[in-house]
Design a protein around this nucleic acid. Structure first.
Lengths: 135, 135
DNA sequence: CTCCTTTTTGCAAATATTTGCAATAAGGAT
DNA sequence: ATCCTTATTGCAAATATTTGCAAAAAGGAG
């Protein structure tokens, strides 16, 4: 026996798998607590960390100040986030996977990271930034 | 006038540029405080955030539980970190830059991320993990 | 050099996150 | 169904990080 299928852990994982989206610790807590009235925030923190280590979910910094958690999909994907307006663009796995494969070969490493988040500027915000003072 | 060259900001940036390594908030505070006795941790947090936004330094999650800050080098580099033993491998910028360039073209995006950290397993830890129970 | 405006800072009070520990509950064995 | 071992939980107390606000100090203008 090593890890136990507790109601809290089950509820948290199910929530993430069902919603299929990115959720913050707060959001997870708020959505699970109603079904498990005595749920404590620290249990949520601990379980999220556990599920990440176990590989059932991923954590990412999407620039929100607090990390977001997401169930691992069949189809991995990545994000490009605009630092100007916050706009998120979903990236296909192909090119990223190609880089990972190359790095794995070169360094005899096995890459576990499965959700890459890159920050930058979207076309619109790039223009704004380049605009000379419009006065 | 927009941003001011205060002693705290100067000291923090100089520290990072001089040491040329990754430092946590704690470490920055501990090393700058002696020279600026009245320095408050919140000032360190605020300045690190400021310097990141301004583009003078970068933040990264190296898996330590708290982010690390580093002055931006002339030669950008990235890391592969082993989740088993913590070993860090430095990656050259080439292949990563190539992916970034491809993504920038495809999405008309300008990527700002300049320090990529990927997690995985080093050759040694991979073997350990694959070993059937050695009993 | 003095004055003025605005950014920064220190401090204290919020929040957020982690941790220690005793009580609870999974789940295997009997 | 009962007992046992040990992973998990809740709670309270540490830590870590952010925020509001009045006081301090950059830096430009006069």
């Amino acid at each position: 026996m090593q890890s136990r299928n507790t109601s809290a852990r089950r509820a948290i994982l199910e929530l993430l798998q069902t919603c299929g989206c990115h959720l913050t610790v707060q959001e997870v807590y708020e959505r699970v607590q109603p079904q498990l009235p005595s749920l404590n925030p620290s249990t949520v923190y601990r379980n999220l960390r556990f599920l990440v280590e176990q590989g059932s979910i991923s954590v990412s910094d999407m620039g929100l100040g607090t990390p977001v958690y997401e169930a691992l999909h069949a189809a991995p994907h990545h994000h490009l986030i605009c630092e100007g307006c916050g706009h998120e663009i979903e990236l296909s796995d192909g090119p990223v996977r190609a880089l990972f494969a190359e790095l794995e070969q070169t360094h005899h490493f096995e890459i576990i990271t499965n959700h890459l988040v890159l920050f930058g500027l979207c076309p619109t915000c790039r223009q704004k930034g380049q605009d000379p003072e419009s006065s």
